Computed example of a mutant assay.
Amino acid sequence: MTTLKALKGQHHVSAITANAMKNYEFYTKILGLRLVKKTVNQDDTSVYHLFFADERGNPGTDLTFFEIPRAGHTYYGSNSVSTTSLRVPKDASLEYWKNRFNEFEIEHDEISIVSGRATLAFRDFEGQRLALVSDENNVGVAGGKPWDKSPVALEHAIVGLGPVTLTVQNISALSSVLKDIMGYREKGKYEAEGHEVVVFETGEGGTGAEVHVVARPDLPAERPGRGSVHHVAFRVENQEELIKWANYLKELRIPNSGFVERYYFKSLYFREPNGILFELATDGPGFEGDEPFETLGENLSLPLYFEAQRKEIEAKLKPLDTREGGKN
Rank of each mutant, 00 (worst) to 15 (best):
M1T: 07
M1G: 12
L7C: 05
L7A: 14
H11L: 12
I16V: 14
T17G: 14
N19C: 12
M21T: 01
F26D: 03
K29V: 00
K29G: 00
I30W: 00
I30Q: 03
I30K: 01
R34I: 14
L35D: 10
N41M: 01
D44G: 03
D44L: 01
T45F: 08
T45K: 10
F51W: 08
G60S: 11
T61M: 11
D62T: 14
T64G: 04
I68Y: 08
S80M: 14
T83G: 02
T84G: 05
R87H: 05
A92T: 13
A92S: 15
S93I: 13
L94N: 07
Y96F: 13
W97Q: 09
N99Q: 06
N102F: 00
I106R: 08
E107D: 09
S112R: 15
T119Q: 02
L120V: 10
L120K: 06
R129P: 14
R129L: 12
L130P: 12
L130N: 02
D135G: 14
N137I: 06
A142M: 13
G144H: 10
D148F: 06
S150E: 07
E155C: 00
L161H: 05
T165Y: 10
I171K: 14
A173Q: 04
S176W: 09
L178K: 04
I181Y: 03
G183F: 03
G183E: 07
E186H: 06
G188N: 07
A192S: 14
G194H: 04
E196Y: 01
V198W: 01
V198Y: 01
F200E: 06
F200Q: 04
G203E: 13
E204V: 13
G208Y: 12
E210A: 05
V214D: 00
A215D: 12
A215W: 03
R216F: 00
P217C: 10
P217Y: 04
D218Y: 10
D218G: 09
E222I: 11
R223G: 07
R223T: 15
R226Y: 11
H230N: 15
H230C: 14
F234H: 15
N238D: 15
N238W: 09
E241Q: 13
E241P: 11
E241V: 01
N247L: 11
Y248E: 07
V260R: 12
F265E: 06
K266C: 13
K266F: 15
L268S: 07
Y269T: 10
Y269M: 03
F270G: 05
N274L: 03
T282N: 09
T282M: 05
T282A: 08
P285K: 09
G286F: 10
G286D: 06
F287Y: 15
G289C: 06
E294T: 05
E294P: 04
G297S: 08
G297A: 08
G297K: 10
L300Y: 02
L300P: 04
S301A: 13
A308Q: 08
E314W: 01
T322H: 11
T322K: 08
R323L: 15
E324S: 04
E324Q: 00
E324F: 00
G326F: 01
K327D: 01
N328P: 05
